[in-house]
Design a protein around this nucleic acid. Structure first.
Lengths: 212, 212, 212, 212
DNA sequence: CATGAATGAGTATTCATTCAT
DNA sequence: GATGAATGAATACTCATTCAT
C-alpha cells in the first residue's frame, strides 16, 4: 500500500503498541513472541519491524506510552483534587488504570485499554542490562516522585498539610505503596482487598498529615 | 569439596543456592545462565543438575530459601518487638536484608548473603506461566500478610493498637510499602532516601494507629 | 527529474547505475541494500524495480557498464600508444579508473565517476552460483586478454616486440598484474606504492620484451 | 562425551576448519550456511558454536589457518631456493596450493587440503565492514610483501640480483601477479595457461633482474 | 559423583520483492 | 510512473538439558 494518508505511520505504530501491551502484561517480555503480536494483529512479523527496530524497542515504546498515559491522568487528577481525595475510588482507579470504578471487577484486566501493567515488574530484567533504558525509567520514576512531592508542598503552603510533614518522603511513600499494591495484584490478592487496604492506609496517613 | 559424608548433599545444594541468588538478583532470571553459575562455583553444569532438576527448580529453591530466611528474621523480630519498633533502623534492615545497619551503605548489595533480591520482581514473569509456582508464591504472600495481621491483631488485643483499626488492611499496606520501596531501589533511589521515607511514613501511620 | 521524454528511461537507468556502483564498490554486494541506493537517489525502492528486475540484474548492469567504460578507455589508449607507454602514469590511471593523474591522491575514491571497483573481487561470489553471469564475465575476461594479446602481436609484427615473445602469456601477465594491484588497494597499500610497483615491473618486463 | 582426551578441543576445531574451508571456497561466505557445515560434519550446528563464536569468527579462523599454511610453505621454499627457482613448477604449485605438481590437473580443487582459496576474493566483502579483520589481513598482506622483499634484498647483497633493482616494488609485483592469476582461475582460465603465463612472465622479469 | 561435548528446539531479525493506491 | 507498506522465506545463534565416559 502506498502513501496511505498523512499520519498513517503514527496510527500504525499505535495499533501495534496497543496490541503489544496486552501480550507483554499478560505473558511478560520473554514469553511474548513477535509472532504472537503479528498474528494477533493479522500482519506479518516484518510489518512490525517496519515500525520498531527490535522487540526491545517495541517494549520500550509500550512502556513509554503507558507512562505517558498514566502520568497524564495523574496530573489531571491532582490538578483539581485536594489530598483528601487520594482516598477516593476515583484516584485508586486512575492509579491502577482501572477506568470506571463501577464495572472494573467484571473486566478481564488485559482487555482494557491499559491493563495495570506493573511496569516496575516488567522492566526489571531489561533495566539490568540496558543502561539507556534504565536511565530513562529512572528519570521517569524520579519525575513522578517529584511531581507528587510538589503537589503536597503546594498544599502545605495552602495550609492544608501540616508544615512539619516531609513531603518528599510522603511522596516516596505513596508511590511505593502504589507499586507494592500493584505487585499484590500479581500475587492474586483480591482487587477489593487491595482497594480497601489503599483507602484504609491513605485515610490513616492523611489523618496525621492534614491540618486538623 | 569432600565427596561423601552425611549431609554432603544438603551442603552442596546450599552452596549452589547461595551462588545462584547472586546471579538471579544481579542479572535476573533469563540473563542468568546455568553455565555462569557453574563456572562461578568452579564445577560443571552437569554437577548442578545432580542437585536440581532444572533451572526453574533451582530458581524456585532460591526463592524458597530467600523467603524462609526473610520470614524467619521477620518472625524473630516481631516476636520481641512491639509495633512502635517498626520505625527503627533494625526493622528496615531486616526487611531489606541489609544486615548490620551501621555499615550497610558501604557494602555492595550483591556480595551479601542475601542481596535484597526483590523476589516479587524476579518471579513476576515465571509466575505467569507456572501455575504451581504461582500457587506457592501466592500462598507465601498470603501467609506473610496474615502473619503480620495477626501480629497487629495481637497488639490490638493488648490495647496497644486502636480497636477500630483494620489490621488486615494495615498488614497489606505495610507489606506493599515494603515491596514498593524495594522497587525504588531498582529505580536507583538512594537507600538513605528510602530509609528516611520508610521511617517517616511508618511513623505517621503508627501515630494514627497506636493508642494515644 | 523530468518524467517523460524520449530517452528518459535510458537516462534514469544510468543515474541508478552510477549511484549503485558507489555502494557496490564501497560496501560490497551483500552489504549494499536496495533501500540504501533508493534513499541515496531520493526515490523509492519500487522505482528502481521499474528499471531493473532484481538486485542481481542491477549489479550485473553495473558490472557491464563498468567493463564497457574501462575497456573503451583501454582500447582508445592502446589504439594510439605503443607498448612503451604502458609504463606511463596515464595508462596506470586508465587501468584503475583514476582519471586525472595529478590530483588523484587527494580524491576520495568513491566520489569518482568510477571508483576502482575490483570487479573480480566483487563478483567472485555471485559467479559461483549464477552460470549465466559466470559465462558473461568469463567471456569478457577472455576478450580482454585477447584484446591485449592482439595488440602485442601487432607490435610484434611491427618489429617492436621480440618475435620469440609469447604474447598471449604476456597479456595474461599484464592483466593479472593489474588485477592483483587492484586487490592491493583493498589491502590498504598506498596508491603511490602501487603506482611505483606498476611502473617498475612493467619497465622491467618491457626491457626484456621490446626489441633493443 | 566427557573430557575425551587432551588436545581434543584443538583437534575438533581443526576438523571443523578443514570442513569449512571446502564450503567457503566452493560457495563463498554468504552462500555457505552453518547448517551445511554441520551436516557435512555429521554434527549439530550447536557443536560448531562450541568452538567458534560466530560464522564470521569461523571464517576468520579458516583464513588464518590458510594464511599460516601458505606462508609457511612459502618461507620454506624461499629458504632453500634462489630467485631463479621462482619460475619452476614447484614454486607455482606452492603459491597456488596445488601440492604435487604431477597430478594436479586431475584433482578437483575443492577436494584438496587447501583449495586455492583465493582469500583476497573471499574476504574482500567482510573486510569492508570488519575493521579488526581488515587490520589483521592488511598486516598479513604487508608482511608477505616484506618477506619477499627481504628475500630479494638478501640476494641483491649476494650479488645475484642487480643492485639497481627496487626489491620492494618487485615484491609487490610478484605478489600481485600471483593474486591476479588466482583471480584468473575464477575466470575459468585453464590452469595450464596460467602456469605457462606465470613461468613466461617470471622468466622475463628475472632475466632483467638477475645479474647476467 | 563429575565432566563437558553434543544436542536441537526455539526465535528474533533481515531484506529483496510485490502490488494496491 | 512512483510510492512505500506489507510480505515471508531464510538463517544465525542461544542455552537448558542430556549422557557417554
Amino acid at each position: 500500500m502506498p502513501k496511505v494518508f498523512p499520519g498513517y505511520r503514527e496510527e500504525a505504530k499505535n495499533r501495534i503498541i496497543k496490541e503489544s501491551v496486552k501480550f507483554f502484561s499478560k505473558k511478560g517480555y520473554h514469553k511474548t513472541k513477535m509472532a504472537d503480536i503479528a498474528t494477533s494483529l493479522g500482519v506479518s512479523k516484518g510489518a512490525i519491524y517496519q515500525y520498531f527496530g527490535s522487540k526491545e524497542e517495541l517494549f520500550l515504546e509500550v512502556i513509554r506510552d503507558y507512562i505517558k498515559y498514566t502520568q497524564k491522568e495523574l496530573i489531571s487528577f491532582l490538578d483539581v483534587h485536594p489530598p483528601q481525595d487520594l482516598v477516593t475510588d476515583e484516584f485508586f482507579d486512575i492509579m491502577f488504570n482501572l477506568g470506571q470504578s463501577q464495572s472494573i471487577e467484571s473486566l478481564t484486566i488485559v482487555d482494557r485499554l491499559f491493563p495495570p501493567l506493573d511496569f516496575n515488574l516488567a522492566i526489571s530484567e531489561l533495566i539490568k542490562s540496558n543502561p539507556s533504558m534504565k536511565k530513562e525509567m529512572t528519570k521517569y520514576y524520579a519525575d513522578s516522585i517529584k511531581l507528587m512531592a510538589e503537589y503536597f508542598e503546594d498544599y502545605k503552603n495552602k495550609g492544608v498539610i501540616k508544615h512539619e510533614v516531609d513531603t518528599w518522603s510522603l511522596s516516596i511513600g505513596i508511590t511505593s505503596l502504589q507499586d507494592g499494591l500493584m505487585a499484590a495484584i500479581q500475587m492474586s490478592l483480591e482487587i477489593s482487598e487491595i482497594r480497601k487496604a489503599w483507602k484504609e492506609v491513605t485515610k490513616i496517613m492523611l489523618s496525621s498529615v492534614l491540618v486538623d
